[in-house]
């Protein structure tokens, strides 16, 4: 069964009063987050608990990392506690891969720097498929800060694999060099990039980048690249509006558009729990000593 099909079952389960399964009973899952996160961390925690695992949350603020411990030492220390699954979020690209090489247990990437965020792409694909019945052939416009976005990179990979036509839309300063080689059509104008789109996926403008001269101001960014009704009118009438969160209302998305009937932003959060349950279930089948 594919991860997306497995996720559908998890959606059904999560909507029941009794949400508990025992796929991960007796297993220990550690959420190791080196970067702040609301929805990814809490959804992995819920997913683990619904599958019966013992879940421990570790974040940078409370760990020895702040005392100067290196990533590898932290990994080795945690490994000694015999967890079965590590869910890792780190601000540096490749850090999760590095950590995975140093531990015996399974490692799930919950986002590494500007590199990848695989479960986000899965939940986006699930949301799209549930609304459109398919992913293949759809025009997906990923808009905004492509340069810094791991969400964009994972979505480009997955949506292409599922047969979608992927576009990226951003000012040249927020496009990554060679992005067109990743199998996307590149646009620097929202009007052109959103034309006939089935899916409009907005990315968070990483405000901490504002000072590095990439864009002049928030008001200019919103004027040319913020999703408002005017620009949205270029997309198909039944286009879905998506955003991985957290949103900057009035910066990359108009507040009313974010709450529009075509917006599936809240549903994306629900799908986040389901997809992470599916990932953990699939992993559970391959854990040792089973």
């Amino acid at each position: 069964m594919t991860l997306l099909d497995l996720s559908e079952q998890a959606v059904t389960l999560s909507r029941q009063i009794d949400k508990k399964r025992d796929d991960l009973r007796g297993r220990t899952l550690i959420n190791l987050f080196f970067e702040a996160s609301t929805r990814t961390q809490s959804s992995f925690e819920l997913a683990g608990k619904r599958l019966g695992a013992d879940v421990m949350n570790m974040s940078v603020g409370t760990s020895s990392v702040q005392k100067g411990e290196t990533l590898i030492d932290t990994a080795v220390t945690l490994n000694a506690m015999r967890p079965d699954i590590l869910v890792v979020r780190h601000y540096a690209a490749g850090a999760v891969e590095l950590l995975a090489q140093k531990v015996d247990c399974s490692v799930i990437n919950a986002g590494d720097g500007s590199h990848e965020h695989p479960t986000q792409a899965l939940l986006d694909a699930l949301t799209i498929r549930r609304h459109k019945g398919r992913v293949e052939g759809l025009i997906v416009a990923i808009c905004g800060d492509i340069l810094h976005s791991r969400v964009a990179r994972s979505n480009i990979l997955l949506l292409n694999a599922l047969g979608a036509r992927v576009r990226v839309v951003a000012p040249s300063t927020l496009l990554a060099a060679g992005i067109e080689r990743l199998g996307v059509e590149v646009y620097t104008s929202m009007r052109e990039g959103l034309a006939d789109a089935d899916i409009v996926m907005m990315l968070r403008l990483q405000r901490e980048r504002m000072t590095s001269s990439l864009i002049p101001s928030q008001r200019e960014y919103f004027h040319f690249f913020g999703l408002d009704y005017d620009k949205l009118a270029r997309a198909k009438p039944d286009a879905l509006i998506m955003h991985p969160g957290p949103m900057n209302r009035g910066v990359e998305i108009d507040s009313n558009v974010a709450d529009d009937t075509r917006s599936v932003i809240r549903e994306q959060v629900e799908m986040g729990v389901a997809v992470r349950m599916a990932v953990l279930q699939a992993l559970a089948r391959h854990l040792p000593n089973r």
């Binding site: 000072t211 001269s213 864009i215 002049p216 101001s217 008001r219 200019e220 004027h223 040319f224």
Partner: peptide, 14 residues
Amino acid sequence: TKGLLGEEMTEIGL
């Protein structure tokens, strides 16, 4: 650039 200081670009689009 803002204030001609050579540090941050102005609102070129607007």
